[in-house]
Structure formats: C-alpha cells, structure tokens
C-alpha cells in the first residue's frame, strides 16, 4: 500500500471517529429526554400540581408545596442577584480596560467555577448558623450567589453589543454618563439582558446540592422566608431515594417538569438572541 493511501485511510478513520463521538454524546441526551418524557409525562396529573405530599408510603398526593417553593427560591435569588449583577456588568462594560474591571471579571469566572455545594456551605455559614434555623432565605441566597456570575457576564457582553453611535449621540446631546447609560444604552440591550437572566434562573431552578442544608426542604405548606421550604429538586431527590413505586413515579414527574421549564426558557432565550443579532446587523 502506498504511503499516500495510508495517510488518506488514517484521515478517514479519524474523521469517522469524530462523527461517532457526536453520536456518543447524543445517545445519552436522547435517552435522558426519552425517559424523562416517558416516565414523567405519564405520571403528571392534576393532583401533582395541586396536592401536598402524602405521608411516607401512602400513594397519591403531589408536589404543590415544592413547586411554589422553587418559585419562591428563584424569586429571592433573582431579587438579590439581578440588581447587583446588572450594575456590576454595567461597570465592566463602561470601564472595560481598567485593572479593577479585569480583577472583577476574573472573580466572576472564579465564582462561576465554585462547586454549588460549596456555595451552599457558605450560605449555611452566613444565613443558617447565626440564627440556628434553615430558611427559604438561606436557600435563595445560595442560588443568588450561583447565578450572579452569569448575570454579570451576560450584562457586560450585551452592553458591549450596543452600537457606539447610540452612546455618542446621547453624550453629544449633553447627557451625563449616568443618564446615557440608564436611558439609552441599557434599554437598548434590555431584551437580551432579560433573556440572560431567564437562562440563569432556569439553571439555578435545577440546583439541588446548595439547597440541602439551606432551604432544607419541608413536607408541609410554607411560604415564609424564615422557615425551611420545599423545592422541586429536593423533592425529586428524596423520592428517588425512597423505596416506593409511587414516589419514584412522582420523582420522574418532577424531573419532567424541571426539564420542561429549563428547555422552554433556553429555547426562548435562543430565539430572542437570534432576533437581537439580526437587529444589530447593519
């Protein structure tokens, strides 16, 4: 066999391996989605949304408290993380080259890489330990820390997409920096920033580890910020580890709901980013 042929065959084999690698990653994705839909969708019923969990071992009941709990937790997270994250992102976009900005940018990346369970520990130390009580607030705080880096970086990136002409126009008309930023530049990027916030919220809605010892979980109805609160993810964890078929069924239903929320939000985000890109094209 000539050398040229051998090189061509090696090339073909390597290219084939790359195609197989894509399939190898898509198989688990397809399997997960298939099982979540198959086991989860059939387990969804009206009771799942409206009823409370039944006592251990008893069939039936739902996750009404956990669904509301997750909503409350991500609302707390958003209230804490969005203002701080957006203003931080504005600072980074306005002073992109300052030394302070690069340190903060680096800190945001570091924060993004901190394992969620460690963030949970931090929230435990500052919000649970001093008052000796697990609480919805502590859980929301942990989620806020987790979503903060995403909000910071999306805000910065989107503000940088705003055409320089807009800013120059505002400044030429005599606007101060504050009014140029808040009345012209931020509104131009707002749809994109909101999308980024939605994606970040979807991600933290799927977190379990940081809630284990902050929000702690609650079998009963509670919407108080100072009490332990249930969440979808923790309920799925609890039910998955149980020995009851009906609880397994509900765990799948919870997983289905979580995946649907996350997929819907990420598809909306994707579509609106595409629209933004089209708008920015001259």
């Amino acid at each position: 066999m000539s050398k040229a042929w051998r090189r061509k065959i090696i090339s073909a084999i390597a290219e084939g391996f790359c195609a197989i690698a894509v399939l190898l990653a898509l198989i688990p994705l397809a399997m997960i989605l298939f099982y979540v839909v198959k086991q989860g969708f059939t387990s969804l019923n009206w009771a799942f949304f409206t009823q409370m969990p039944k006592p251990v071992g008893e069939a039936g009941g739902g996750m009404a408290n956990a669904i509301v709990g997750t909503l409350i937790l991500i609302a707390i997270a958003a209230l804490l993380a969005v203002p701080i994250g957006c203003i931080c992102g504005i600072h980074l976009a306005e002073y992109p080259t300052s030394k302070f900005s690069s340190i903060v940018r680096f800190a945001a990346d570091v924060l993004n890489g901190v394992p969620s369970i460690v963030v949970g520990m931090f929230a435990y130390i500052i919000a649970v330990l001093p008052v000796k009580r697990f609480s919805a607030f502590a859980g929301g705080l942990a989620l806020a820390v987790l979503m903060l880096p995403t909000v910071v970086r999306t805000t910065e990136e989107l503000l940088r997409l705003v055409p320089a002409g807009l800013r120059e126009g505002a400044l030429a008309l005599g606007a101060t920096r504050t009014s140029a930023v808040f009345t012209v530049i931020v509104p131009a990027a707002l749809p994109g920033i909101l999308t980024g916030v939605l994606v970040a919220l979807a991600r933290v809605a799927g977190e379990t580890a940081p809630l284990l010892f902050t929000a702690f979980g609650n079998r009963f109805w509670s919407i108080s910020l100072r009490q332990p609160i249930a969440s979808l993810t923790q309920q799925v964890y609890l039910y998955a580890n149980s020995a009851y078929d009906d609880w397994h069924r509900q765990a799948w239903a919870g997983a289905f709901l979580l995946v649907m929320i996350i997929l819907t939000l990420s598809i909306i985000a994707r579509l609106s980013v595409r629209r933004l890109e089209r708008m920015n094209r001259p």
Partner: peptide, 9 residues
C-alpha cells in the same frame, strides 16, 4: 442544561 438531579435519577 440538564440538572444534576435528573442525571442522578
């Protein structure tokens, strides 16, 4: 994007 808990389940 798939939550860790769903991978676990």
């Amino acid at each position: 994007a798939i939550p860790s808990i769903v991978y676990g389940l």
